[in-house]
Design a binder for these strands. Sequence first.
DNA 1: CATGAATGAGGATTCATTCAT
DNA 2: AATGAATGAATCCTCATTCAT
Lengths: 215, 215, 215, 215
Amino acid sequence: MGRSATSSRRLKEKEDRKGLILAAAREVFFEVGIRRATVDMIAAKAEIAKGTVYLYFQTKETILAHLLLEGLDTLHEYLTNAFDESAALDGETRLRRLAAAYYDFYQLEPDYFRLMMAFDRGQFQESVSPELYELILLRSLRGLRCVADAAQQGIHEGRLRAHVEARQVAGMLWAALNGVLVITSHPLRRELVEQEVEKLYAGVLETMLSGLRQE
Amino acid sequence: MGRSATSSRRLKEKEDRKGLILAAAREVFFEVGIRRATVDMIAAKAEIAKGTVYLYFQTKETILAHLLLEGLDTLHEYLTNAFDESAALDGETRLRRLAAAYYDFYQLEPDYFRLMMAFDRGQFQESVSPELYELILLRSLRGLRCVADAAQQGIHEGRLRAHVEARQVAGMLWAALNGVLVITSHPLRRELVEQEVEKLYAGVLETMLSGLRQE
Amino acid sequence: MGRSATSSRRLKEKEDRKGLILAAAREVFFEVGIRRATVDMIAAKAEIAKGTVYLYFQTKETILAHLLLEGLDTLHEYLTNAFDESAALDGETRLRRLAAAYYDFYQLEPDYFRLMMAFDRGQFQESVSPELYELILLRSLRGLRCVADAAQQGIHEGRLRAHVEARQVAGMLWAALNGVLVITSHPLRRELVEQEVEKLYAGVLETMLSGLRQE
Amino acid sequence: MGRSATSSRRLKEKEDRKGLILAAAREVFFEVGIRRATVDMIAAKAEIAKGTVYLYFQTKETILAHLLLEGLDTLHEYLTNAFDESAALDGETRLRRLAAAYYDFYQLEPDYFRLMMAFDRGQFQESVSPELYELILLRSLRGLRCVADAAQQGIHEGRLRAHVEARQVAGMLWAALNGVLVITSHPLRRELVEQEVEKLYAGVLETMLSGLRQE
DNA sequence: CATGAATGAGGATTCATTCAT
DNA sequence: AATGAATGAATCCTCATTCAT
């Protein structure tokens, strides 16, 4: 119970604190929107002093980045559960399950989803350390790899067109399905499309799968 | 007639000035991003005083809204040219041409495209007059209608599955293709997908069309 | 019909214009309050260009000063009518009539009254030419002189205490009655006093007159 | 107990700071007038950063309201001292002492007096929280109640006309005496009356008392 | 004379970040 | 480690006044 135990406890407490702040930040971002969220609000929600926030996160953007990481991890869980490596599922089934899982994520974790959609361009990259940026990229890739794996399996099984790379199939599916959710996330555009998200999402999924099966 | 000429000149000058400010705003938004853009920057870029901006636009958000309208008009031109009502084109060709036009718009008018993507949620709706919001909605619809018309034609010609509504087809196509562009607009996500936008875009288009032709 | 006639017409038009602006200013001040009134509003209400306002008045404060003059003139009319020089009225009656006239002015010309109350301290004196200031002072005196004259008459008639100067009596009456109106002009203070203005005004008047009759 | 001592010290420091800002604000308001006073000036006078002001007061108007409260408290001290509950004084003496105390307040605390006079109409009520407004009203009432109590005593003692309510007497006296001070607070009007404030004030007081004694 | 577009010096308020305790 | 008071640059917007036409 010497130094090591103590420091490990310390480390754990530190992690707890970080998690506490992240949880508070997530709530605040969700409640008032990312733009209107302030460090004061986050500190107040976490019931700690404002200065303390800066002991755990260098900048406000860093908090966002870490939240994004959390979101990516959560999404990854959804996706791996859907992929269900240990089960005997064919590729197309896996793709459908993955698509359904993404939709679940969109519905059950709207705050994470909004967060992931909200990073517009440059601003973000500039204000976060390269290491963190790299990390986000890596974690994002894991999700896409699930889809690519399922696609690869589908190609092997002869259910998808052979002349397309699995990786490309994954990108196309993700882009198209994500596109549905992006559009319907925006009130203006949702009014525009006038269709239920679910129906639109299912339509794009089926059409894409059908198109991919085609010779 | 003198008066009329004068007032029409006045009107034109006023419009020019508005255009000048909009052009400056567009540049500023493009250079530093919407969030970091300030009215000062816009005024400086337009080489006018800050107060002058407020002679032409009630609010910073109003400038954004007008830029959005400009963007929508520009897009509409691209789309109507592609549709080419006077020509004898079949529905599927029209859909392809519309998709290509949207891609052109994305490439040739990146600032407008970014702007259209960047409106995040509620904040916008709140800070713009209902009339302006309505106008934006209306103009947005025009673009979608082009796609819907082409889809309708395709269905009539028997090239697309008959049991889907044209409106729904349009929504699906737009969502999917827009999804490709959204993803590739974001540096992080572009790195992720690792594919050339063009190839991805073409892939989704062909896959969707192929899927829509399917029985 | 030479130069002279023309210039007199010019002069008249100029006066008309001035009156037009003053009327507009009065309405605006009354509608939105002095602090919130802007030159734009005044010009809009007068249906002339903003620059034109500055052809007739050097500054916004000058407009206020001229409005004040108008108000003083109006008040003076009320007072001279009440005094009714040509009639055979005793001093005390005249004082009562003057008091009633001041109350009428407060009720029938609330905008002028508010204006007269609203000049707080130094700001005003600084921002108006000495000549104009002198003029205002002079016009204000005329009103007070009416009261002093009536008081003088009352003293002569033996109805008021002889050992007080008429001028002082006038000052005291004006101060006391004006005090009632000032207090009840302010919402906070009106809530405070909880009495009807009219009753309070009458009470002070009778009490003062009664006190002044006393040995 | 350590904690308690600390937090009580904290609280005291916080109150001190608030007092510091209020003192600075009072000086600024007095020097340049309420309208011309800016938060920058207040911060500069207090030798703190502009943002710090907003740690202690939500709004510029709130500062004014708190100054007003300070002024009302100060006035209340003057009045209760004059009333001197523990002493055996008759009602009329008390009224005279209260009047004298109000005059002292006017002379010794001119900035507070000016402040109390300067709240013009609605603007104020709108820009302050209802609670604060209520508080101001309450505190204002305390002063008036002193006067009403003395009047009540006078009526009981048979020195004042029995058929008038004490509350009404208080209102009349306050209105009349305040009227004197209002008029003489304004340079323009002071010039007008041409009398020494003190003499005018005494005259109105005596006349009112005399009138109130009358059958 | 009249216009009204242009000006630009403020003004109130916010908020990420720092730092003495 | 934790605090939270202090900072001050930044932001949007206003409006009295000027001046070229």
